[in-house]
Structure formats: structure tokens, C-alpha cells
């Protein structure tokens, strides 16, 4: 079994994103965690690119690494973390607290693995699905869901706008 360049890139990028994600969720400092998250997203973008979806890969970089993480950083700055206790210390029974999610996660992985194994065939032919194909699908066939998505965004916009307005009489409570 020979490894193609694609395999090398895929496995390398995948391992990189797993490691950085693990680091991201275990940091105590949110800024470090966000930097690790950016790394992981770049890795995932590479994986997506290798899988033949260049448009999605570029969106992943632009939206996640760009918009989402920057938004996170803004909020972290606004939270004024220097005056906020973020390290809650270790409570008793930590091992139990880790054991329960561990068992849960492992059983979910096993369950999904069983669900996927032996289905959907083994091999697949390699297609590059470019932006034009995606755009045609998106804006011709799925125009109604797109509109619904825009409404979702509008609702989020209005909600965020409303919630972010600090009203003194209620906000100071």
C-alpha cells in the first residue's frame, strides 16, 4: 500500500488539527485556546481542500479563522478577563467528573462507528466539486433554504443587537 501525496497531506493535517483542538479545549487562558483553535481550523481547511472542496476550504478559513475567532477575541477583550476569575481550581471528585464524560464520549464514538461500519461502500472516486457547482446547487435548487438561512441570520442579528444594548436600569442589577 503506497501513500499518495494526498494521503500524506490528509493524515498530517488531520493529526495536526486533532492535536491543536485538544490543546485548545484544555488551555486555561482563552487567548491561547483561541490561537490553538485557529491552528486547528487551518488544519481542517487543508483536509477539506484535500477532500476536493476548495470553496468550502476557503470559506472555512475566511469565516472560522477570520470572523469567528476574531469575534471571540473581541468578546474576550470586552470581558475584561484581568478582573475576572477564570481559574476555578480543582474540585473534589474530579476523577468522577472526568470519568462520566469519558464513558459518554467513548460510547458515542463506538456507537457512531458501529452505525457507519459496513455501510456506504468503501472506496469513492475523487471529484473536485468547484464553486460553480456549489453555487448552482445553492442558488438554484436550494433558494428557499437560503432565504430561511438569511432569516436565521437576521434573527440572530436582531437578537444580538437587542441583547447587547446595555440598559442601565436592568443591566446594573
Amino acid at each position: 500500500m503506497t501513500y499518495s501525496m494526498f494521503d500524506v497531506v490528509f493524515y498530517g493535517a488531520g493529526a495536526f488539527s486533532v492535536v491543536t483542538t485538544t490543546l485548545a479545549i484544555t488551555r486555561t487562558n482563552p487567548v491561547y485556546a483561541l490561537l490553538n483553535f485557529v491552528m486547528s481550523i487551518l488544519g481542517i481547511a487543508l483536509v477539506i481542500f484535500v477532500l476536493g472542496a476548495p470553496f468550502a476550504a476557503s470559506l472555512e478559513v475566511i469565516v472560522y479563522a477570520g470572523a469567528v475567532v476574531v469575534l471571540f477575541l473581541f468578546v474576550v477583550m470586552m470581558l475584561n478577563l484581568a478582573h475576572l476569575k477564570t481559574d476555578f481550581g480543582v474540585k473534589r471528585g474530579r476523577s468522577v467528573r472526568l470519568a462520566v464524560p469519558g464513558v459518554l464520549v467513548i460510547s458515542i464514538i463506538i456507537e457512531i462507528g458501529i452505525a457507519f461500519s459496513g455501510r456506504f461502500g468503501k472506496e469513492t472516486t475523487y471529484h473536485i466539486i468547484g464553486p460553480s457547482a456549489v453555487g448552482r446547487q445553492l442558488l438554484v435548487a436550494d433558494i428557499i433554504p437560503i432565504e430561511l438561512g438569511s432569516m436565521l441570520l437576521l434573527a440572530a442579528l436582531l437578537g444580538a443587537f437587542h441583547l447587547a444594548r446595555l440598559s442601565p436600569e436592568r443591566g446594573r442589577q
Binding site: 472516486t125 466539486i129 446547487q137 445553492l138
Partner: peptide, 11 residues
């Protein structure tokens, strides 16, 4: 989407 060669995955 890759498996089925269809743009729906990206959508």
C-alpha cells in the same frame, strides 16, 4: 459530499 460526489455536502 465527497463520498457521493455531490455539491450538497458543501451546501
Amino acid at each position: 459530499g465527497m463520498r457521493w460526489g455531490h455539491p450538497d455536502g458543501q451546501v
